[in-house]
Amino acid sequence: MSLASLLFALLFYVAAAVLVGGLAYRIVGYARTPAPLKIPTTPAPTTGGGVVLRLAREVLLFESLFKGSLWLWGLAWLFHAGLALVLLRHLRYFTEPVGSWLVFLSPFGVYAGFAMAAGLAGLWLRRLWLPPVRYISTPSDHLLLGLLLAIAGSGLALKFGVHTDVVAVKSFFRGLLTLAWEAAAGRPAAVAAPLPGRCADDRVPLQQAAARAGGVLLAVAQPGRRPARPPPPRALGRAPRS
C-alpha cells in the first residue's frame, strides 16, 4: 500500500470521525441546555403533529426563506437539492449490490452535480455582489462556498474530464468501510477529488449541520404554550410526581 493511499485512508477516517463526533457533541450540548422560556416563532403550530409538519417544511422546502427572499431561496434550494441527489448517487461507490432505486436515480445525480455548482456559484456571486450581504460576510463564508464549489467542480471534472477507474475507487472505499484496506486506484486524482470535501466536512458539522440539528431540537422543544384550557385544579393540587 502506497503512502498516498495510507494518507487518504487516514484522512477519510479523521474526517468521518470529526463529522459524526462533532455533530453528536453539538446535539448533546444543545439537548443538555435548558429552555426555561418558550419562544415559538410565528406561525407556531399548536399540536405535536403540526410541529413535525412545520419542521419538515422548513428542512425540506426552506419555507421561511421562501417568504424572505425568492432569489436566495431559489439558489439555496438548487444547491441543497443538488447536493442531496449527488450524495445519494455517490452511494453507488459504497454499496454492494447497488439497489435498483439507486440505478434509477443515478442519471439525475449527474444533472444534480451541475445544479449544485450553479446554485453555489449563484450564492457566491450574490455574496460578492449585494452590498448588505457583502457587508456581513466573513472570510470563512467565502471559504466555505469555495470549498463546496471545489467539491462540485472536481466531481464534475472526474465525470466529464479526467475519467477515472470507478471500479478501483469503489473497491478502495469498500475496503475503508470494511476496514480491509486496499491500494487506491492508480491515478491519484480519483481519491484526491474528495479532498476539498474532507476539509469542508470538517468545517460543515462545526457550523451548518450542527445548526440544522440545533434548529430541529429547538423547534421540537417549542410547541409548549398556554393550554387551551388549564388542567382541572384537582390534578394540580396533588404533589408533583417526579
Binding site: 441546555t33 435548558p34 450581504v133 456581513i136 457550523q207 450542527a210 429547538l218
Partner: peptide, 15 residues
C-alpha cells in the same frame, strides 16, 4: 438558554 446557544452557532450569514 438553549436558544442563545443555537442562535449564536446557527447563522450562515445568508442575509
Amino acid at each position: 438558554y438553549r436558544s442563545l446557544r443555537v442562535f449564536l452557532d446557527a447563522c450562515v450569514h445568508c442575509g
